[in-house]
């Protein structure tokens, strides 16, 4: 096994293990911390694919900003394991079954498609580097990019309106 393969398996195991930790831990603060570990493992995968910009943006935006807000809310609400109401057994079973169904759909959709094979070969290419990504965004996909920025702007305005005092 080459170093890349070892890293791939390590990161994959880390991601899956941490994802199990997210749903298995009783304390929501621990769940959030496990989720941060998942994001780090996924960022590691991006780096293996030579997409450094995506990796670091994943860390800055998801692990650095959104998860901090999650932690804020959870810490302020002071959710504890004791306060959590006990769920019914068949509720848990229903959740398990629907989750597995979603997994099957994902695997079925991705395994046959050509995209999945391309992703695997990304390692040698430079498509994830910031220069190429910027060119693609501002030449080929400039209209969707601008529309999504308008969407963000309207979301910001909406947040300000909601947060404003009457």
């Amino acid at each position: 096994m080459s170093v890349t393969q070892i890293l791939f398996w390590f990161l994959s195991l880390l991601a899956v293990g941490a994802a199990i930790g997210v749903i298995a831990s009783r304390n929501p603060v621990y769940s959030v911390l496990w989720l941060i570990v998942v994001f780090f493992a996924i960022s590691g995968h991006y780096i293996l694919m030579n997409a450094q910009f995506l990796a670091i943006v994943n860390i800055i935006v998801y692990a650095g900003a959104i998860m901090v807000l999650f932690l804020f809310v959870i810490m302020l609400m002071n959710l504890n394991a004791e306060a959590e109401p006990a769920k019914h057994l068949y509720l848990k079973m229903a959740g398990l079954i629907s989750g597995l169904c979603l997994l099957i759909v994902f695997v079925a959709a991705l395994s046959g498609s050509a995209e999945a094979k391309n992703v695997g070969q990304l390692g040698g290419s430079n498509i994830g580097l910031i220069k190429n990504l910027g060119r693609a965004l501002f030449n080929d996909y400039v209209i969707p990019f601008e529309i999504s920025s308008v969407l963000f702007l309207s979301a910001i305005v909406g947040a300000v309106v909601i947060g404003k005092k009457e």
């Binding site: 603060v29 911390l33 941060i36 450094q52 910009f53 670091i56 943006v57 860390i59 800055i60 692990a63 650095g64 900003a65 901090v68 932690l71 804020f72 810490m75 580097l129 910031i130």
Partner: peptide, 25 residues
């Protein structure tokens, strides 16, 4: 010498919050 140099600094800085928040909580 990574080609995202200064963004790396930002990523690390945004991680710095966790040390404080985890410690405080």
């Amino acid at each position: 010498d990574v080609n995202i140099g200064i963004l790396y600094v930002f990523g690390v800085v945004s991680m710095g919050v966790y040390g404080i928040m985890i410690g405080g909580w």
